[in-house]
Design a protein around this nucleic acid. Structure first.
Lengths: 222, 222
DNA sequence: ACCTGAACACCGTTCAAGT
DNA sequence: ACCTGAACACCGTTCAAGT
């Protein structure tokens, strides 16, 4: 009887766009941005590379779909107490997604206002309206927030790419701090001045502080 | 006699790192990011691809050197009247460089705090100090400015990549505005609300407005 | 010391042929 | 309708051989 039990054998499930995208995300998460290859993907799916093209037009679309899959899972609920808190929650949700999947950062920084980012822009914009920002200033405010978020996303992804896989955050920050402290004092006084701060640095908190700074700018009435 | 005149024949100049980087920038500017190939580069330099490797360790370094060459040329003079104006001038200088060479945007958004960006961070930081920002807040302020700049850089580069070469800015913005106006009113009220603004949109002015917003946040004392 | 260019080990993508 | 996998047209990089 045991041999007759129908256990779900992934290899036998029919190929589908969904299964391709899921596997692509797995590959991206485990092997990194350079690891997503049509050949590697085909092997994991137990087919030839050509099969994938029947469900997906090419690598660009695949990368886009993988990004959508991750970002789409970041719940965008306009629910918190104040607009400021909602914006902060939204931004931190994105930060966490990107932190967990660094390749998403690269992708977002590369691709223009596609579906997932448009959704974020919309959510940011609504909260900017709720903040009582005058009509003409709303676009600028929402854009500034989005651009800041995308900038951090790109840098995070770049750091994840640079650091050799073994290193943890503390070690990396410590190495950077030491490097900064060895810079030419005449040319880099400020960088040296803030170098030691890196050792007590919390990326996430720093990111949130940046959001707060922009929010302060948005709500400051001259 | 004419045949004896020594006219500078580029093909006969010896290969040098400098000549390689200059040619790479030309290639990047004319053929785009996908056009920089060791084979194409070698052809322009009238050699084989292998020769380039004697002067440069690989493509990553070449891309970095090309970026340095462009950004390094962006004069970083801490000279304007107020710190605010200096920061704005610095940011706009970067914006213009990236606008002229979109591939620089991609590169900056990808590579972490390398030489050219460290220089920008330093300059921003000094002005933040000049603004009288308290010690503990200086790092956050300089980072927020830099991340915003990098975010815009990445988006600009992405747009330049998306648009088919013929299209001019106005045409592109108009098409985006129309697309936004056709979005589902229930899901995208804000985006639709600001869509028409795109038709009178000035990227550069918008970028500067974002800088001003962050500056307002930095100088706002709670 | 510096250059040459064939060769290696990959890519993404296509497509005739199968089921 | 969907899958297969060999083949095409590229890459970046290496390296023996040249000058």
């Amino acid at each position: 009887m045991a041999t007759r039990t129908r256990r779900p054998d992934r290899r036998q499930e029919p190929l589908s766009r969904e299964r391709i995208v899921t596997t692509a995300v797995e590959l991206l998460d485990t092997v990194g941005e350079g690891g997503l290859t049509f050949r590697a993907l085909a092997e994991r799916l137990a087919t030839g590379p050509g099969a994938i093209y029947w469900h997906v037009t090419g690598k660009a679309e695949l990368l886009g779909a993988a990004t959508d899959a991750v970002i789409g899972a970041t719940a965008v609920k306009d629910a918190a107490a104040t607009p400021q808190e909602t914006i902060r929650a939204l931004a931190l949700g994105l930060f966490d997604s990107i932190d967990a999947h660094p390749w998403v950062g690269t992708q977002l920084a590369r691709s223009p206002s596609q579906p997932p980012m448009l959704q974020v822009f919309e959510s940011l914009g609504r909260q900017v309206q709720a903040l009582g920002v005058p009509d003409e200033a709303q676009f600028t405010a929402a854009s500034a927030l989005l651009n800041y978020i995308l900038g951090v996303a790109g840098q995070n992804a770049a750091n994840a790419r640079t650091v050799r896989p073994g290193t943890d955050r503390t070690e990396f920050l410590d190495a950077t701090a030491t490097a900064w402290e060895e810079l030419d004092p005449d040319r880099y006084p400020f960088t040296r001045h803030v170098a030691d701060r890196l050792r007590r640095h919390d990326d996430r908190a720093e990111f949130a502080a940046g959001i707060d700074l922009i929010l302060a700018g948005i709500t400051a009435r001259p």
